[in-house]
C-alpha cells in the first residue's frame, strides 16, 4: 500500500517537456498557475482544459498515472466545491429550503473551483514532477534563486537539502516496509482497534525509523566530507544548464496559453464570474 505514493515520480521519456530546461519549466509552471487564476468564463476554462490535455499528450505520460496524481485530492476538491455551492450568494436563486440557499453563481463558482484545482495539480505534475528528475528540478530551483545569494540567502544549501530529502524518499519507504514486516512477525497489529490503539501501534515502526534516519544522516554527512564537500562556494557542475530550442517552444506555448485565456475572458464571457 505504501508503494502507491506518487510523490516525486519521474517518467522516463524524451518528449519536449522532458528535454526542456528545468528553469524554463519552473517559470512555465508559475505562469501556468497564475494565469489559471485569471480564467473567468466557461470558454477560458474549456481552453485551459484543452491546453492541459494537449500538454499530457505531448509529455507522453499515460493518462492513468495523471489521474492517480489527482485521486488523493478528490476529498479536498469535493469539500471546496460543496462549501462554495452552499456559501456563495448571488442573484439567481436556484433552490431554497429553510436556511439553505443555492444560487446559480454558487454552482458555477464551485464547478470552476474544482476544475481549477484539478488543472493545477495535473499541470504541475505534467510540467514538473512527471517529466523532470528530482535532481534537475532542484538544480533549476537553485539557479533561479541564485540572485538571492546577494542577500546572503544560503541557496545552495537549501537546494542540497532538497536533493537529499528527495533522494531518500524511496529508501525510507522501503525501510518502513521492512520494519513493518519485522514487527508483524512479532505479532504487531496495525489494522484493528480504535484510534488510540492504532496510533500506539505505530510507535514500534516510527522509533526504529527515526533512529536509522539519524544514523544515515550522520553517515551521509561523513561520506560527503570525505569527498571534500564544502558547501556551494567554488563548486562547479557536471551538467551545466543551458536554454535550447525546446525552451523557445515552451515559451511560445506559454504565450499561447496566456493570450488564449485573456481572449476567451474578453470575447467569450459566457457564465463569467
Amino acid at each position: 500500500m505504501i508503494k502507491d505514493v506518487t510523490l516525486g515520480q519521474y517518467f522516463v521519456g524524451n518528449s519536449l517537456l522532458h528535454r526542456a530546461d528545468p528553469r524554463a519549466k519552473l517559470l512555465f509552471a508559475v505562469l501556468y498557475i497564475v494565469v489559471l487564476f485569471f480564467a473567468k468564463s466557461a470558454a477560458s476554462f474549456a481552453f485551459a482544459l484543452a491546453f492541459t490535455v494537449a500538454m499530457i499528450i505531448i509529455s507522453g505520460v499515460p493518462f492513468k498515472s495523471v489521474i492517480r496524481a489527482v485521486k488523493p485530492l478528490a476529498f479536498i476538491i469535493l469539500f471546496t466545491a460543496v462549501l462554495n455551492v452552499f456559501w456563495t450568494t448571488g442573484e439567481k436563486l436556484l433552490f431554497e429550503w429553510k436556511f439553505i440557499h443555492i444560487y446559480e453563481e454558487g454552482v458555477i463558482f464551485a464547478l470552476y473551483m474544482a476544475v481549477r484545482i484539478i488543472l493545477l495539480v495535473v499541470g504541475m505534475s505534467v510540467a514538473l514532477t512527471y517529466t523532470t528528475t528530482p535532481i534537475a528540478l532542484t538544480d533549476g530551483i537553485e539557479e533561479l534563486l541564485n540572485p538571492l545569494k546577494k542577500l546572503k540567502v544560503p541557496v545552495h544549501d537549501f537546494a542540497m537539502m532538497m536533493t537529499i530529502a528527495m533522494r531518500f524518499i524511496p529508501t525510507l519507504i522501503e525501510e518502513t516496509d521492512k520494519i513493518m514486516d519485522a514487527q508483524k512477525a512479532r505479532g504487531a497489529d496495525f489494522e484493528s482497534g480504535g484510534l488510540v490503539k492504532k496510533a500506539k501501534a505505530l510507535i514500534p515502526i516510527l522509533i526504529p525509523l527515526f533512529v536509522s534516519s539519524f544514523k544515515r544522516a550522520d553517515d551521509l554527512a561523513i561520506a560527503m566530507e570525505c569527498r571534500c564537500y564544502r558547501g556551494g562556494e567554488g563548486r562547479t557542475k557536471l551538467k551545466q544548464l543551458r536554454y535550447g530550442k525546446c525552451d523557445v517552444v515552451l515559451l511560445m506555448l506559454a504565450a499561447v496559453f496566456v493570450s488564449g485565456i485573456i481572449l476567451c475572458n474578453i470575447y467569450l464571457p459566457y457564465f463569467s464570474i
Binding site: K178, A182, K184, A185, R186, G187, I203, P204, P208, V211
Partner: peptide
C-alpha cells in the same frame, strides 16, 4: 506468526523500546 518466528536480516533495526 507466533508459531513460526521470523528473524529478518539485520534485525537490530527493529528494536524500539
Amino acid at each position: 506468526r507466533f508459531r513460526v518466528g521470523l528473524v529478518m536480516q539485520y534485525p537490530e533495526y527493529q528494536l524500539f523500546d
